[in-house]
Amino acid sequence: MSATATWVSPSTRPELIDELVSGVDRYNPANGGILEDYLYHQIRSQEYDCLANLAILKLYQFNPDLYNGDVVINILIKALTAAPMPDFNLCLALLGERRPYPESDDDEPDPLPSLLPYLTALSELLHQCRFPEFWKLYKSEPLAPLRENYTIECLGFDDSVREVVVRAVRAAFTKIGKQRLSNYLDLDGEDFVSFVEDVDWSLEDDVITIPPNPDNRIEATVVHENIQFPRA
């Protein structure tokens, strides 16, 4: 199975959504609600479907009146923890256009503009593997609105961030010190021990051993040219 299969078509994606995402129905503004409901389902049940969420942003791009700042923030939160994959920027690429002007003054202000710089900063910290700084920024006072209004609703958000950490550490380390990993994961004590066990790493004398995998096993090789001739 290719490494992108789950990303292109997650096994949790319902058939109806699959039809929407793959066909021309995705352009029908009337289907926006279905996709938004599916996004909130992802938020509640720790699922992730990037292409379906991009379809929402596509509808917003073509129909600015449909724009909903809360939905966009939730999409970005989901895309954030796909690092180091480019999902977050793929979402932003569809987003940058001018939002509709408020019809009147008593409209709810759009929550996105004030949060977007922080979300972007969080994304950069994850892509740069600066995990301790990520937690520091994420828990800081200015980000209280993000935590209290959004990520608190997003089931397993912290754990999704830790999965980003696991991916980075698994590829680069064979052994890693406990304190370092603990800072990366923002976990200590019992929580730390049980997390390490859950990912099948072993902890001994304050050192965590990461089992061999294709990325942390290195060997010097000589590469020979391999030419295949097409057969007529």
Partner: peptide
Amino acid sequence: FVINQNMVHISESTVG
């Protein structure tokens, strides 16, 4: 490369 705690081990593939 791979990191074993604080030791970085490096390997390079060479091309025939």
